[in-house]
């Protein structure tokens, strides 16, 4: 799975938004500047976007824009603000169906804060684990390792696009976190079980939280 890009035109066709809307959202910083990737093609310069990220974001905007003004949306979607100081109780997480009960009951006690609340980062980690568990890629014990890995590197990777590689060799599970875009090459014995762009999950998680 590569970091797929989508051209501006494809994006507009796929989502049914117009040029005007796209530029308006950009002005309101609903779509961050870094996502506008300029590349030269045979028709000249074209703008591309990271596919998963931008589709999730556009989807979120379209869903929310009926209830909120664009400015409110902007503050809600902005990458750092809004969510980073969110704290949820176990009950709230279960109610919103963010992660499954199984995940929550297995790992909840290990990762929750002293006051029994979950921060956005913790939630994200749980969400990642939950996704991998749900796909059947990972077992519960490996999940613990994953959470520890994510937890110990939260600070370094904050605000940077990052990918999680989950590989196995001879049945031993390994987790790797790499700031994207990075290309990793493994030896033959290694099987890449899953590659997860954390940015996508952040988008999804934000969607569920709002």
């Amino acid at each position: 799975m590569e970091d797929e890009l989508i051209s501006k035109k494809e994006l507009l066709d796929l989502t049914g938004i117009s040029y005007g809307q796209l530029y308006r959202w950009k002005r309101k910083q609903l779509i961050p500047e870094e996502w506008f990737i300029r590349k030269s093609t045979f028709t000249g310069q074209e703008t591309f976007f990271p596919k998963m990220l931008v589709l999730a974001r556009v989807h979120n905007i379209l869903n929310m824009k009926d209830d909120l003004s664009l400015d409110e949306l902007a503050s809600r979607l902005s990458d750092t603000g809004g969510f980073s100081d969110i704290r949820l109780t176990e009950k709230a997480i279960a109610e919103r169906n963010i992660v499954t009960d199984l995940t929550l009951s297995s790992y909840g006690l290990d990762v929750q804060g002293d006051d029994g609340m979950y921060s956005f980062d913790t939630l994200l980690h749980l969400y990642v684990a939950d996704n991998l568990l749900a796909n059947g890629d990972m077992n519960l014990e490996e999940g613990r390792l994953l959470l520890r890995t994510l937890d110990s590197h939260t600070e370094e990777l904050k605000g940077r696009p990052c990918e999680l590689y989950f590989v196995r060799k001879m049945g031993v599970a390994l987790f790797m976190l790499a700031p994207s875009p990075a290309e990793l090459y493994f030896d033959e014995g290694v099987r890449l079980i899953a590659k997860v762009a954390l940015g996508d999950l952040i988008e999804q998680l934000k969607g569920r939280l709002s």
Binding site: S18, Y19, G20, Q21, L22, Y23, R24, K26
Partner: peptide, 11 residues
């Protein structure tokens, strides 16, 4: 003269 690299507008 009006010179712009790229224009993106509603109208």
């Amino acid at each position: 003269a009006g010179q712009v690299r790229e224009i993106g507008v509603e109208t």
